[in-house]
Every structure is written in C-alpha cells, then in structure tokens.
C-alpha cells in the first residue's frame, strides 16, 4: 500500500505536465466561456438572471464529462502498453496501482473544475451559490465520468475504441441535454434527462441549491450518487477480471 502511495506524487506530476489535457480541459473552456461572456452580455433568462450564468455553469460541467479521458490515457499508458511488464514485476498490488491512477485522474479533473469555477466566479462574476456545494457536485460528476471511462476500458478490447466511446458518452450527454439542437419531447429522452444524464443532474443540483430549494437539489445529488454506486460495482467486477 505504501509503495502505491509513493507513486501518487509522480502520477500527479505527469498529469500536471500534460499540456494537451490542460489545453483541452482548461484553456479551451476558458476561451469558450469568455466568448460567451461577450456574446450574451446583459441578456437575461426567464428568471431574470443573466443568461450567461447558466451558460458558464453548463460549460464548466460539460468539460467535467470529458475528465474521464485523463483516466483512460494513464491507465492505457501504464497498464496496457510496454510499461505494463515493469509494473507487473514490481512488488506492489496492480489493482491498487490502477486505483491510485484512477483516483489521481479524478482528483485532477476536479482540480481543473475548481479552476474553472474560480475563473468564472472571480473573473467573470458568475454567481455559483455555495462554492462547497458546487465543488461537491463537480466532484461527483468527475468521479462518475471517470468510472464510466473505466467501465469502457475494462469492457472493450481496443483501448482506442474505449477512448472514442468515452467521447460519445460526453457528447451524448451534451446532445441529449439539448445544448446543440432542440431535442424532441419523447418520454424516453425526458426520463434519461431527469434520472440518468449526469450533466443535467449536476446542473439541476447546482441550480436548485442556488434557489434554496435544497430538497430538490438533494434529489439530483442523490441520483448522481446512485449512478456512482452502480458504476463502481460494475468497475469492480470488470476490473478484477481484466487486471
């Protein structure tokens, strides 16, 4: 266990030096949110708040959906490539090491989310409400996305396919939420958005908390939590077999 813990600083160093990930999951959302800041300006939504706040919050959450790609990249690098042999021969538990990489990936994704909340809150005056609640929800979303990515790694033979499917998961959530184009009001889609779409679950948890409707906020948080529990069980079962 201690040996695995000693690898964590190095895993985090590696992630912090991954300029591509920082570009994709930090710089790009900052640019996009800033452009929307200028585009939407003083436009108000149906509740009388600035429309930009909703957009900024949604965009911050959208990029958490793709945080699972960090986990995929490092699991692939260490456990499904040439380095696998060296890790297998090392006197440390492989499942624990895989877990440590996954946790580092989740933590890094949460940290990037925090930086986006900081940027939008301080730099662009977005009202997030209770920051601790927001970070908690972002953490849940990051964990769920990472677990989905792990399920894909462990259930699909080709790691490239797992990466593409992870993108499909992220883009799919965004499309179903109606952010690219209006989605028809079919019962199935409404059900998915209400109970399964992590993006909307997180967005609703945050927005209800902002409106002090905590019982509704907790319901959405609870649904995210259920999703995490179910995906964790699947990961555990699949992961033991694969690793």
């Amino acid at each position: 266990m201690m040996r695995v813990l000693r690898t964590i600083p190095y895993t985090l160093i590696r992630m912090s030096r991954d300029y591509i990930t920082l570009l994709l999951l930090l710089v790009v959302p900052i640019i996009l949110i800033t452009i929307f800041y200028f585009v939407l300006g003083d436009m108000k939504n149906q509740y009388g708040d600035l429309a930009f706040y909703d957009t900024a919050q949604l965009m911050t959450l959208v990029f958490q959906l793709f945080g699972g790609s960090i986990v995929i990249a490092y699991i692939q690098d260490d456990l499904f490539s040439a380095r696998r042999q060296r890790i297998l021969v090392a006197p440390m538990s492989l499942p624990l090491y895989a877990l440590s990489i996954s946790l580092c990936g989740m933590f890094f994704s949460i940290f990037l989310g925090f930086l986006l909340v900081l940027f939008t809150g301080v730099g662009l005056n977005v009202e997030w409400g209770n920051v601790f609640w927001v970070m908690y929800i972002i953490a849940l979303l990051a964990v769920l996305s990472s677990l989905v990515s792990l399920i894909l790694i462990f259930s699909v033979k080709n790691i490239k396919l797992a990466e593409r499917l992870s993108d499909v998961y992220g883009i799919g959530c965004v499309v179903l939420a109606g952010l690219f184009f209006p989605i028809p009001d079919y019962p199935v889609i409404t059900f998915i958005n209400e109970y399964l779409n992590p993006l909307l679950l997180a967005a609703n948890a945050i927005s209800y908390a902002q409106s002090n409707l905590f019982s509704d906020a907790y319901i959405y948080m609870f649904r995210l939590g259920i999703g995490i529990v179910i995906t964790f069980i699947i990961v555990y079962v699949l992961g033991r077999r694969k690793i």
Partner: peptide, 28 residues
C-alpha cells in the same frame, strides 16, 4: 488531432457555426 479538437470548438463558436456572427463582439 487532440489540439485540433480543442481548436474546433473555438472555430465553431466564432466562425458562425454555433451562433450567428452578428451576436459576436466587433473584435471577434
């Protein structure tokens, strides 16, 4: 590919694909 993917969302936004160009600030 990865860097292009990051650029494409910005290009789509300011290039008039995702929102009308008229809504962008003059500079953009």
């Amino acid at each position: 590919m990865l860097i292009f993917m990051s650029m494409i969302s910005v290009i789509a936004l300011i290039g008039g694909v995702l929102i009308p160009i008229e809504l962008l600030p003059e500079v953009l």
